[in-house]
Computed example of a mutant assay.
Amino acid sequence: MPAATIRQTIPPVSDSETDGATEQMTSRSVLDSLLESGLHEMNRERSGLLLSGVSAGLDIGFGPLMMAVVLTLSPGGFGDLTTELLLASVYSIGFMFVILGRSELFTEHTTLAVIPVLDRQASFKQLGRLWGLVYVGNLVGGLLFTLLVILLMPELGVVDPQSFETIALKLVDHDLPWLFVGGVFAGWLMGLLAWLVTAAQDTTARILLVLIVTGTIGLLHLPHSIAGNVEVLFGLLVSPAITLTDYAGFLVLATLGNAFGGAVFVALLKYGHVVRGAE
């Protein structure tokens, strides 16, 4: 039964049940907001979705760039606590630009765009259209950002090309099953972020949520298909240690893992518990 129908049949809540119902009402409110946002994005023009995806792909590149700057300037490296925390913090910068700037990010839509399909207000064809346009836009934006930085890098003077190789190897130097499973966790966290940001009441709370959630992805070095696209592209273009096969394998498995994690562990489970809890 669609959530809209269920909400119409909910009986009044007695005073004795108020405390227990408050949290559930908040969850329904969040679900409604996500449902409305998802439907809005599905109905946007192709060009608007594609350009928004390109914008997100460009903006998110600042995270990997700042990671390379930190690795270049820091006396430590991966494994050093201070450096790891700094890297996780600057990794979040690109996500802040994208999420607070309301650009379209594929990994957010592994939850956001799935909810209207679960609610039977959108089709899988519409979901595929949205995912395809946003995903392609994100990849194109990431490629453009990477090429711009490669051109500017000699004049920047604060980035060692070796740093890009180090960051890329941290993502591709794994067995293929790990890339998928790690991608599931990254997609799970990004879907959870979409839910939490919608529930947050102010900009400060949203900034903290983005910092905590995406910083966790950075600290664990989980494969995020869009930010990781930029990280591995940097390595591919500046280092012979990163091959096109490494890049393709990372992108395919990280994308599949991200989609599975956001769709199943957030969209499906949270939609199910809110709708069933309302019955």
Rank of each mutant, 00 (worst) to 15 (best):
L169E: 09
L176E: 13
I207M: 15
G182L: 11
N229A: 13
S163T: 07
M153E: 14
H224V: 09
L179N: 08
W178A: 11
I150K: 08
S163D: 04
L211F: 13
A168P: 00
L189M: 14
T214H: 06
M153W: 01
P223M: 12
R206C: 10
I167S: 01
P161N: 08
L237N: 05
G157Q: 08
W178H: 11
L189C: 07
R206E: 10
L176I: 14
A200W: 05
D160V: 00
L196W: 04
M190F: 09
Q162T: 12
V213Y: 04
L192F: 14
G183H: 06
P161W: 05
I226D: 02
L176T: 14
L152F: 11
V159E: 00
E165C: 04
G218Y: 03
P154W: 08
Q201E: 15
F180V: 04
T204E: 15
E165Y: 01
D173L: 06
D173R: 04
F185R: 11
V210K: 02
V232E: 02
L192D: 11
L179Q: 11
D160I: 00
G228N: 06
A168L: 03
H224Q: 12
R206H: 12
L209S: 11
V159K: 00
T214W: 01
G187E: 13
L189E: 08
V213E: 09
P177Q: 12
L152V: 07
Q201F: 09
P154A: 07
G187T: 06
R206Q: 15
G187C: 10
T166K: 05
L171I: 10
V230F: 00
L189K: 03
D202H: 08
L193P: 00
H224C: 04
T204A: 15
L209E: 10
V213G: 05
I212N: 03
L192K: 04
E231M: 12
K170N: 13
A194Q: 07
G228D: 10
V172K: 07
V238G: 01
K170A: 15
L151H: 10
F164H: 06
L222R: 03
L233A: 13
I167M: 14
V230H: 00
G215D: 13
L152H: 01
H221A: 15
L189I: 12
S239L: 03
M190G: 05
F180K: 02
T203Y: 08
S163A: 15
L209W: 03
A199D: 14
P161G: 05
F185T: 11
D160C: 02
L192C: 08
L171W: 00
L237R: 05
E165S: 13
F164Q: 03
H174N: 13
V159W: 00
P154I: 11
S239N: 06
A199I: 01
Q201N: 14
L176A: 15
K170G: 07
D173T: 07
L151G: 09
V197T: 15
M153C: 07
R206W: 09
V213K: 03
L211G: 01
